[in-house]
Design a binder for these strands. Sequence first.
RNA 1: GCCGAAGUGGCGAAAUGGUAGACGCGCCGGUCUCAAAAACCGGUGGGGGCAGCCCCGUGUCAGUUCGAAUCUGACCUUCGGCACCA
Length: 823
Amino acid sequence: MTSGSRQVELGFDPVSIDRKWQERWERDGLNSVPDNDERPKWFEMTMYPYPSGDLHIGHWYAMAPSDAHARFRRMQGYNVLHPIGFDAFGLPAENAAISRGIHPYEWTMDNVENMRRQLRSIGAIYDWDREVVCCLPDYYKWNQWFFIKLYEQGLAYRANAPVVWCPSCITVLANEQVLNGACERCGAMVTRRDLEQWFFRITDYADRLLDFSGLIEWPDKILTMQNNWIGKSTGVEISFDIGSLGIEEREIRTFTTRIDTIFGVTFIVLAPEHPLVEQITTPQHKAEVEEYVAQARRTSEIDRLSADKEKTGVFTGAYAFNRLNWERVPIFISDYVLMTYGTGAVMGVPAHDARDFEFARKYRLPIRQVIAPISWDGSELREAYLGDGFMTNSGAYDGMTNDEGVEAISDDVEKQGWGKRAVSYRIRDWLISRQRYWGTPIPMIYCESCGVLPVREEDLPVLLPSNAEFKPTGESPLAASAEFVNTTCHACGGPARRETDTMDTFMDSSWYMMRYVSPHFQDGPVDPELAKSWLPVNQYTGGAEHAVMHLLYSRFFIKALYDMGMVDFEEPFLRLYNQGVILGQDHEKMSKSRGNVVAPDDVVSVMGADAVRCYLMFIGPWDQGGPWSGEGTNGIARWLNRVWDIAIRDAAALDGSSGSASRDTRRLLHQTVRKCYNDLDRFKFNTAIASMMELTNHLNRVWAEGSVEPELWDECVEKLLLMLAPMAPHVTEELWERTGHEYSIHRREFPVWDEELAADEVFTLVVQVNGKVRDKLEVPVGIPEAEAQQLALSSPRVQSFLDGKAVNKTVYVPGRLVNVVVQ
RNA sequence: GCCGAAGUGGCGAAAUGGUAGACGCGCCGGUCUCAAAAACCGGUGGGGGCAGCCCCGUGUCAGUUCGAAUCUGACCUUCGGCACCA
C-alpha cells in the first residue's frame, strides 16, 4: 500500500495489464534490437546498476524516465539500443562472503536474478539478449585483454607509492574514493601505506581530457568538475641551491605559478614525505622532524587538506639559497605541502600566498612584499596580497608589472639553467590494483628469470579461483590460492607467480558500452563492424556523482583505444544528462537506517508500473530530483484512470453540433503534440505530462457538452495514447487494443503537429499602465499595432488610470501587450 | 574555507524580460450514499470591500528597464561538489 490514507480506485486492473503485455512483448521479441536496420541508430544508455539485491525507487527514478526518452526516440523513427547490465564486481559481494559465508559469485548472481525480475517490472525496452554482467569470464576476459594492450602501450606501469589504505576493508582506495577522510564504502577513517601497485597513465591524457572541443554536449557543471579535477596550472619549476649542505643532492626543486614573487621567498617548505627530508635534517632537529613525519603519515590526506586546520610544521635546521638574490632561507616541513602535487616542495612567499602568510605569522618568519598595487603606501600587509601590481624589492625587475615579471624571470631562470617553465596537474595516475577477491585478476606474471610478463592472449581469461580466502589478511585473497599463484613462465618454462591483485571496477565500466553492441562476440571485446555502426553512445544518463571518476576514466580509456586504432571515436558519450536524487517524503535522503526506503515492488503491485513511471516523471524536472510522496501518486493514478475512461468511450454518442468546440479541440490537440514532442526531446517529462492532463481535462469538458465531432474525438484519443505511450507503455498498449488498433502501439510513430492547426486565432492582449496590468482584451492574432494601441487606449479601465495625464509613450509587444507610459 | 546550483501558495511545481502560481497533491464546499470511501463538480497566494474592484506578493536589500520570479551587484539560507594545488 502507498502511504496515503486513501486509495484511488481504478477502473481497470493495472497489475494484470502489466503482466499481460510484458509477457506478450517478450514472446514477440518486440524489444529485440536488430543490428542491421534501415533506420538511423540511437544508442541511449543509462548507467548500469550494482546488483546490491533489491531495486529501490532511486533505480526506477534513473531508469523509467530514460526508458521513456529511449522509447520516444524509437517512436521518432530511430533504431534504438537501450541496454541494461550489471556492474557486478565489487566489495559488497566480498563483504557478504566474509560475513555470511556465501560465495561472492553466488551472492552476486542471486541478486542479479532478483533484480532482472524487478527490472522487468518497469516495462522498459531492454533487449535482454544484450545484457552485460561484468563478473562473468566472458566479460572480464576483455578487461584483461585491454589491460595487456594498455601495458604494451606503456600506459600501465608498476610503482611503489603511498596509497590510501582502508584499515577496515583492508584494501587500497583510489584518491577519488575517499570521502571526508573516510572510506567511501565502509566509512572507516583511512590511513596511508606503501604498496607496489599497477597504475594507468591517465596523466598522459590530462590535456586531451581537458579538451571538450564541442564534441560532447554535457552539463557545464560536469565539465567544470572534470576541469577542476584535472587541475591544470602553468608555472615554473625553480630549484633552490643546497650545495652547502654537503649531501649528494645539490638542489631542491619547487613548482610555482607565481615566479614573479621569487624575491619574496623567505622560507622553503617540503612535504613530510619528501625524500630529502631525512638527509637535510640536522641532528638537533632530527627527533622533532621524525615525530612530525610519523604523525603526517598517520593523518589522512583529507584531514591534512582541511581548510580549517591550523598550519603546522617544523624546521629541519637546514637552509637553501635563492639563486636570484642568493639569500639564505630556512627549510621547513609541513603537511600542507603534498608530495603528490608539483614537486612536493614549495617556495614560501608569505606576502603573496595566503597559506604561506599564515605559516609565516605562526613561525615568525619575515614577510616581504614584492608586488605593489598601484595604491600601495608601503605599509605592512595584514593579509597576503594576491592581486596584480608592480614589481618591487625585486632587483633588476623592479618597476615591471608582475605579468612582465613572470616572463622576464622565467626567461632568465631558463637561461641560467635554474629551472624551466612547467605545467602541473592535480590529477594523479589511475591506481588500478585492488587487494580483493571479487574483481578481474590482473593478467601479469612474475618470472624469476624473465621478470614481469603479461599473460599470453591465448591463455586468457585468467580465471578467478573459486577457492579463495575471503577473510581479510591485508593481502589479496588470491594470494591464498596456491594453484592460482603458482604457474609456469610461458617464455622460459620456469616457475613463475601470478599477480594476485584484481582490478578496480571502474575498469569494467570504462568500456561496457562497447560490449552491449555485441555481447556474445568471441573474437574481441566488440565486433568491429557493429562497433562502427553503433558507437559511440548518443545519450548517456546517470547520477552526477560519477562526474570525476567513472566519466573521466571512461573518457581516458576510449582515448587510449583511439590512439591504438581500436575505435574510430574519441569520446564515449556524446550527450550526458544527469538526473537528480529521489528523496523521502520530508526531503531527506533515503537510506535503510532511516527506514524511509520506498520499495517499488510494493507500489507497483498496487497501482501498476505506469503510475509509478509517470509519477516519477511528473514530480518535477528530472535533473532536480525531489521527494517521493505516497499521496502524490494518487493524482497520477486518477489521471490514468481518466485517460482510460476517455479512451473507451464510444464517440458515436457525440453530435458534433458546435463547430467552434471542434476547432478549439483540434487546436489544443496540435498544441499538445507540439509541447509533448519538444518537452520529451529535452527530458522535460513533467511539463509534457501536465500538457496531456490539460488535454484530457478539455476532452472531458467537450464530452459533457457533446459538442465535438466523433472523428475528431477518436483522433484525439489515438494521439493522446501515442503521446503517452513512452511514459505509460502498458496502459496505452491495452487501450490501443481496446480501441480497435493494430498491435503494437510501440511500433507506431510519435504524432506530428501542424503549425497552422496549432495556431491561435485570438490572444489575450494585456494592457498595462506604467507596467501594471490594468486590462485584458481578447483580440485576433496579427492585429495591427495601431489598432491594438487604439483598443488599449480606449479601454475605460485604462482611461480611469490615465486620469487625464499625458501619455509619454506606449510600448507594443506583438502578440502580448501594450504598455502605456504616463509621466 | 573554496567552487557550483537553487530559493515562487500548506506541498511538488509552471512561467527564463511581458497576464505570477499552468498541471497535480492537500484542504474546503457540493453531488451521489443510510453512512463512509471512491468518483464527479466547484473553490482555494495574503489583505481589504456587500460588490464592481483595489492593495500587497516569487529569500533580503539595491540597481538596470516602459516592464524583473527571470538580468546585474551585495547579503542571507539551503542543497550538491571539493582542490590549502603553491
